[in-house]
Design a protein around this nucleic acid. Structure first.
Lengths: 149, 149
DNA sequence: GTGCTTGCAAATTCTTTGCAACTTT
DNA sequence: AAAGTTGCAAAGAATTTGCAAGCAC
């Protein structure tokens, strides 16, 4: 677990209690798993990892915790392999995701200059732009190596 | 149904038969519904509309037809309201989608200059970019009017 | 103690599969 | 006639809900 993860967990727990939620053991476990992951995870994957730590945790708790974290914008929903139930730790400020199509390893990159164009594009179609979704996909370093092997 | 839709349907039927598929009545109905829609539709929505025309059509046929159309890239999967099973007629050339968060009305816009940056962004993280997903959301003209009402 | 959480079991919802009858080419 | 397609019913997944017992604050 890197510095960033630790940083996230503290922040997440603060956010959670600030919004009236309780910090329970199952939640702490789920938080840690998501924060430590280098790739987006499905509810089931989170559940499996969580069970290794707390065998009697319920899948339902995963769903409910994920829902809460998403509501607080602490995690993001990611498009990956036709799934959109996978989640990844949220962006800090204005960033977008870069996902490896092979292994799922993900990284954030900063917003583009281009985003300024979005309003203009919207206008030309009569839309008032309120948001955008941008995600790049490709092969991470590891998976590029495997390709050539 | 506008010109664009008619144009799509002819093209779609050509593509379908060219890939060894048969043009059947249920398929024609589904094709027409998707081509004529100004917003992304879920399998169930397509089914409901189709039933109005062919009461004994099966939901299964919708799933199977959608799968086929998607495989031929004639329709695109769209992110809308947490769903990613909704589909919309495909892009022509290099375009991206603009979706109304209220009513779903959608339009395509041309690719951005900015896309040239994507490769560079990828490189700086060690990724080899193979694709990107960009979708804008906002309020369409109709829904902006309703807001002020 | 109060009120949020948990895990279980059951209920829903969504999607896929097996198959015999039926169309398209 | 051959090969792809259809709709039904059933199977399988994925997700949500009701609820009594259990914790966090």
């Amino acid at each position: 677990m890197d510095k960033q993860s630790i940083w996230s967990i503290d922040k997440w727990e603060n956010e959670l209690s600030r919004s009236g939620c309780r910090i329970t053991r199952p939640r702490r476990v789920i938080l840690n798993i998501i924060a430590a992951s280098s790739r987006p995870l499905t509810p089931m994957e989170i559940f499996d990892q969580a069970r290794a730590v707390t065998p009697n945790i319920g899948l339902v708790t995963v769903y409910r915790t994920v829902e809460k974290l998403e509501g607080l914008k602490l995690i993001d929903r990611v498009h990956h392999l036709g799934q959109c139930q996978t989640v990844f730790r949220g962006t800090r400020g204005h960033q977008h995701l870069l996902v490896c199509t092979e292994c799922g390893r993900s990284a954030y990159f900063d917003g583009l200059e281009a985003e300024k164009q979005f309003t203009t594009i919207g206008n030309s179609h009569g839309y008032k732009i309120t948001g955008h979704w941008l995600q790049l996909s490709g092969l991470c370093q590891e998976c590029q190596k495997k390709e050539t092997t």
